[in-house]
Structures are given as structure tokens and as C-alpha cells.
């Protein structure tokens, strides 16, 4: 069995937000514009949270990329009345856009607040429409969405391996955020495979889960060597 997982080394993260841009481009994420963003409707599936330590001028900024944690015991799943979000056999919290009726209950029950909602129909005025990713659907208004671990890339990787009549190898599948990270702070792979890079990172003594005591069993593991663990305050 496969359990897709991701590890993020916070000690390597510079907060450059290349991953945020890459994610938006890969996944046809709606750009809502200045006014809507001010209302709290920016639609990033992946965001860099910034936390500051110390007093000016001795300030240090901590960066924390937060995306859907693909929980093993996801609070968002049981509350959906229409099975629009469910757990797929490979450990992803899958979203079925066509089933979603927009109760937004899942988003309220997400302890990480990573779910985003299409408040209006997406608009991609020319020439933006020609840069849409053909492998990813454009979501209509009134539908919830969130990070999919680039499920289209997982599918493509599996298809390619199948054509070459081999198993998917570690590193075959790379998510958009991972690919674009200049410091290689993100790795992705199969957590069930003990030899995969992500499994090794996850066994690091620096590894921790975000809000781990909720026991949501996230598929995303963070690594941090400093005292600082969670942005609790």
C-alpha cells in the first residue's frame, strides 16, 4: 500500500514563496484580486505563515509553509453531508468538486484552516486562460477546494511507470511546491516505503506534526531543529 506524504524542513525554508506561486500555477487556482484578498478570500492552497521572535532590531522571522496536512484521521471528512471529501486508499483527503454543495462545514472543522472556498466563479481572462493546466479542472463558484498533493502528478507518475512496466520509484513524482523550492526544503513520497526520502526525513529527531496532540495523524511532517516548534501564541 501507498501512503503519500510530505516532509518540510523548516530550517531550510527561506520564506521566498516560490512554492505558493508554483502551486497556484499548477493547480489553476483562482486569483481573486486585491479587494477580495483584503476580505480574507485569497485562495492559496499553500501559504507561508510568518511568525516573529524577539524585539526590534533583533528580530528573527520564522517561516512555516502550511498546506492541507492530508490527515490520517481528518476532521473535515465525517462532517461533509455529501461525501465530497473523503479518504482515498492512498492516504489522500480527496475532494470531489462535483459533489460539493458548499456547506463549508469541512473548512470550519479543519484545525489548520487550510481549506479555501470559491466565493465566485473563477475567471481567467485572456491570455491567462491559455496558461491553465489541462490536467486540472477549473472549479466553479460555491465549491470548496484545497491542496491535493498534486494528485494529477501522482496519476501521471503512475501512468508512466505502468507504461514502462515498473513500479513507481521514489522521486518519480514531485509536487509543484517541491519542484520549485530553491533550498530543497520539501520532499514528497511514500511514507509506507521505509527507504523513501520522505520516510527517512520523517524519522529525523527534528520531525514533528503540526498540532500533533489533536491526533489528526497528518501526512505532512515538519522538521525543525530549534526550540521553536509550533506557532502557539
Amino acid at each position: 500500500m501507498t501512503r503519500w506524504g510530505m516532509a518540510i524542513d523548516l530550517d531550510r525554508c527561506t520564506g521566498c514563496e516560490a512554492c505558493v506561486v508554483a502551486c497556484a500555477a499548477e493547480n489553476n487556482i483562482q486569483t481573486v484580486g486585491e479587494e477580495q484578498a483584503r476580505e480574507g478570500r485569497a485562495m492559496h492552497w499553500l501559504r507561508i505563515e510568518r511568525y516573529y521572535e524577539g524585539e526590534f532590531p533583533n528580530v528573527r522571522t520564522r517561516f512555516m509553509p502550511v498546506l492541507c496536512q492530508q490527515c490520517g484521521a481528518a476532521p473535515c471528512e465525517p462532517v461533509c453531508p455529501v461525501y465530497a471529501t473523503y479518504r482515498n486508499p492512498e492516504g489522500l483527503n480527496a475532494m470531489v468538486y462535483s459533489r460539493c454543495i458548499g456547506t463549508r462545514f469541512c473548512a470550519n472543522n479543519c484545525p489548520y484552516t487550510v481549506r479555501v472556498f470559491n466565493w465566485f466563479d473563477a475567471e481567467f481572462p485572456a491570455p491567462l486562460d491559455s496558461q491553465l493546466n489541462p490536467d486540472v479542472s477549473v472549479r466553479p463558484g460555491g465549491v470548496m477546494e484545497k491542496c491535493t498533493f498534486c494528485v494529477q502528478r501522482i496519476q501521471a507518475g503512475k501512468d508512466e511507470a505502468a507504461q514502462e512496466e515498473r513500479d513507481v520509484a521514489d522521486g518519480d513524482i514531485r509536487t509543484a511546491c517541491q519542484q520549485s523550492c530553491p533550498t530543497k526544503a520539501i520532499t514528497f513520497g511514500d511514507l509506507e516505503d521505509p527507504d523513501s526520502e520522505v520516510s527517512k526525513w520523517a524519522e529525523s529527531p527534528r520531525a514533528f506534526s503540526l498540532l500533533g496532540d489533536l491526533d489528526t495523524r497528518p501526512g505532512v511532517v515538519y522538521l525543525s531543529g530549534s526550540e521553536w516548534r509550533e506557532p502557539a501564541e
Binding site: P78, C80, P81, V82, Y83, R99, I101, G102, T103, P140
Partner: peptide, 29 residues
């Protein structure tokens, strides 16, 4: 309050071509 009120009936249990039933674990159901 629904995002897509036109398909609110997805929440109602009845046999349908989608082969889907509402999620009875949801308090909304």
C-alpha cells in the same frame, strides 16, 4: 447558506444515478 443551492438535494437520501448516498455521519444530515 449553501455555496451551490441548486444541488441541495444531494443531501437527501434517495436512489440516484450517482450511486451515492448522503454521509449519515455528518451532523448536517
Amino acid at each position: 447558506h449553501l455555496g451551490r443551492v441548486a444541488i441541495f438535494y444531494y443531501m437527501i437520501p434517495y436512489p440516484n444515478s450517482r450511486m451515492l448516498w448522503p454521509n449519515f455521519r455528518s451532523p448536517l444530515v
